[in-house]
Nucleic acid binder design. Structure first.
Lengths: 224, 224
DNA sequence: GTCAATATTTTTGTATACAAGATAGGCGAG
DNA sequence: CTCGCCTATCTTGTATACAAAAATATTGAC
């Protein structure tokens, strides 16, 4: 068997969590996962340990692993931090972007625009991710980029819900345009402010988020 | 044996890395660690997996784990992000601190002052950590607090070096005073700016950092 | 003497076995 | 009928065993 089985298992399980295949609060049984992936418990445990370390699952001693089910205010806090980090990435990108970054950013923005005009929510969701990663890359801070990618990934399920909201896609695209302009103009503080606002969960989006979380919570309770 | 042996092992090894017992770039042999801690390889591996997930060790497939040895510019990036996150914590603390936070902050600052006047660098180092944690707590963002504590911990070895620099302790204490004042006055942006400056590695401190890293690098090279 | 190919040794990765704690179900007392 | 305790079962945690890959040493050819 390949040397990095546990690595693939980690990604597999992580993906299952992020896509919602494993629901928040769900217990992750080791033998069940082991038989499912056709391996023994050992690599499963190692994968779970890694996921536990990055906070995707909670490992309760002698009581197994469960998918973390963050309280609504915790999710809000995560968006709050994400907004600040994206703002930082934007500010650095404005100061440090190269010719290549310029091209990548404009291109990613164009792809978003295409997805938005064809009203393809799923594609916009994907291109949006590329756009944000282009900003992280343009910040030329490898560490910041890693942190942003990790947090962005962790917030994926919640962001997906938000895109369904009416007109959010058009609004998002418009904000992207302003962000690109600020970065390319080298205006660090404008880029920071715009990205903060773009990512932050405020106003209507806050109530939408809480509502979606509440719904999930209710569903979970009704099942239990 | 207790159910959370691997948990203790993780903390043990992590501490060894942060305190420099395990040097950057050092290979962490599984059987060696196992015999050292009197356990089998299994919990050692699980601990290493967790440390790998948070970026303290690098796990190269089929080739074992080594303590990560970040390049100087990577360390700089980490301080850069830390500065921003501390700034954010300070800004939130200014807006959200309670009576209890007020007391904790003032007390932590007083302890720092005592350590500084008695010129006790080790104690200042310790009290400084308490002070910063008081700010994280006052931000009333559990997620931000966790992120800050983790990064703060990871930067420990580098910060320790910095405190040795002439007059850094007095300077640090003075900055603490201004930070406390800004937070208690509820001036979020002042608190943010002051904390950014306090944590950031700029001017002389930058050359000091690079010099210390360079020294270590040289040592490592001479050994290899 | 040096380089390369091969054999040996070491070390990682995975599976399995076993021990101990947690959960659940049944049994008895009130 | 309900509550609490005790036992049976299940699950996790750790150790050990084995397989495969990498590192190292050895031997042979040029």
């Amino acid at each position: 068997m390949a040397g990095n089985t546990f690595h693939k298992l980690r990604d597999e399980i992580e993906n299952g969590i992020v896509t919602g295949e494993f629901e928040p609060g769900e217990r992750l049984d080791e033998v069940q996962l082991a038989t499912r992936y056709g391996v023994s418990r050992t690599p499963i445990r190692e994968a779970l340990m890694q996921l536990g370390a990055i906070g995707l699952v909670e490992i309760r001693p002698r009581r197994g692993a469960v998918v973390v089910d963050p309280a609504p205010d915790r999710v809000f806090e995560m968006f709050e931090v994400m907004a600040e980090m994206e703002g930082m990435a934007g500010a650095l990108a404005a100061r440090r972007h190269t010719e290549d970054d310029h091209v990548a950013l404009v291109q990613a923005h164009a792809q978003c625009e295409e997805a938005a005009t064809s009203e393809d929510t799923d594609r916009y969701y994907y291109e949006n991710e590329t756009f944000h990663r282009a900003i992280y890359a343009a910040s030329h801070s490898g560490f910041l980029e890693e942190q942003c990618v990790a947090l962005h990934r962790r917030l994926r399920p919640y962001r997906r819900l938000q895109l369904r909201v009416r007109n959010r896609m058009k609004m998002s695209l418009k904000e992207h345009g302003e962000i690109v302009a600020a970065i390319l103009a080298g205006d660090a503080e404008a880029a920071r402010a715009l990205l903060r606002g773009h990512v932050a969960v405020q106003g209507d989006r806050f109530s939408d988020l809480v509502a979606s979380l509440g719904k999930r919570e209710g569903k979970r309770l009704s099942l239990g």
